[in-house]
């Protein structure tokens, strides 16, 4: 039976939550935080229901298509946001996290719902590859959000405008730590996704296997991983890059690479990930973007 739950349901819930968060910047509304939590929780339930429905319809979901992959990333990010409502109830983190969540939901609506190419790869490799890259994307997004907040908070403290608004951001120390951890975690996860993608490719073709380096998605992901590794090495050898604004800049640069990868993944019709249209539709398996 069709439950009637679709992307508009949870997308609208998240949009209302964002409106509530933004309203808190201008005026004091009683129980705003509770309303925010309830609306987001309702959205999360609908979101979970929708993903469950996709799994029921398509056994390889929720990582079987770009659409599901985006929605799962949004789901993880929403869960993190709900956690922040409990742990940091007085901070305006939703102002930054909810647009990222809505962007992922929006990207899901644009992304293809058809299953990703399997190339007869072992299911486990595709699943691990997809999970790594999905979590890596979440880590880069969190780093980007933390970086933005760091730069904004740093600017507000520097310019002595802290008291001018109701935007309550975490301390610079917290944001710097979140930034560093997000960058390190993203490097590991994207690296893991990259390696499992290669292994997946080799596993499905055996001795004849080759890695399609010229594929736009593979190419952009390689560039992104290269940047993350360079950023980590830079942080290790250059003390100033371990703290302050430098970390924020590094995570924002990583986000630019992520946008590039996601744009190619979503709109790059000639990538090997879309060849399932011709060869992989019959037997879809779990898999990420590479």
């Amino acid at each position: 039976m069709d439950s009637g739950i679709n992307m508009i349901c949870f997308g609208a819930c998240y949009a209302i939550a964002l409106a509530l968060e933004l309203s808190g910047l201008w005026t004091r509304i009683r129980l705003r935080r509770v309303a925010c939590l309830m609306v987001t929780a309702a959205g999360l339930v609908a979101h979970t229901w929708y993903l469950g429905k996709r799994v029921a319809e398509l056994p390889a979901a929720p990582l079987a298509s770009h659409h599901d992959w985006y929605l799962l990333a949004a789901w993880v990010l929403t869960t993190i946001y709900v956690g922040t409502l409990f742990y940091y109830p007085k901070k305006s983190l939703g102002v930054f996290l909810l647009p990222a969540i809505l962007a992922l939901v929006g990207a899901a609506s644009l992304a293809a719902t058809k299953p990703l190419a399997s190339f007869e790869a072992p299911r486990v490799w595709g699943l691990v590859h997809g999970v790594f890259l999905m979590l890596g994307t979440v880590a880069v997004l969190l780093g980007f959000v933390a970086g933005l907040m760091y730069l904004m908070q740093s600017s507000r403290i520097k310019n002595k405008t802290l008291a001018s608004g109701r935007l309550r951001l975490p301390s610079l120390e917290w944001l710097e730590r979140a930034n560093s951890r997000a960058l390190g975690t993203a490097t590991v996860l994207v690296g893991g996704g990259f390696i499992t993608g290669i292994l997946s490719r080799l596993a499905q073709q055996g001795d004849r296997g080759f890695v399609p380096w010229s594929d736009p998605v593979v190419l952009s992901l390689t560039a992104m991983m290269g940047w993350l590794i360079i950023a980590e090495v830079f942080r290790l050898i250059y003390p100033a890059a371990r703290q302050g604004r430098k970390v924020a800049y590094l995570t924002i640069a990583a986000f630019v690479f992520l946008i590039l990868v996601l744009a190619i993944m979503t709109f790059g019709g000639d990538s090997l990930h879309f060849k399932s249209e011709t060869i992989g539709q019959a037997a879809p398996t779990a898999g990420g973007p590479t």
Partner: peptide, 10 residues
């Protein structure tokens, strides 16, 4: 309470 805590978490 209001300024240094914006820089330091603890």
């Amino acid at each position: 309470a209001e300024l240094a805590s914006c820089v330091f978490e603890s």
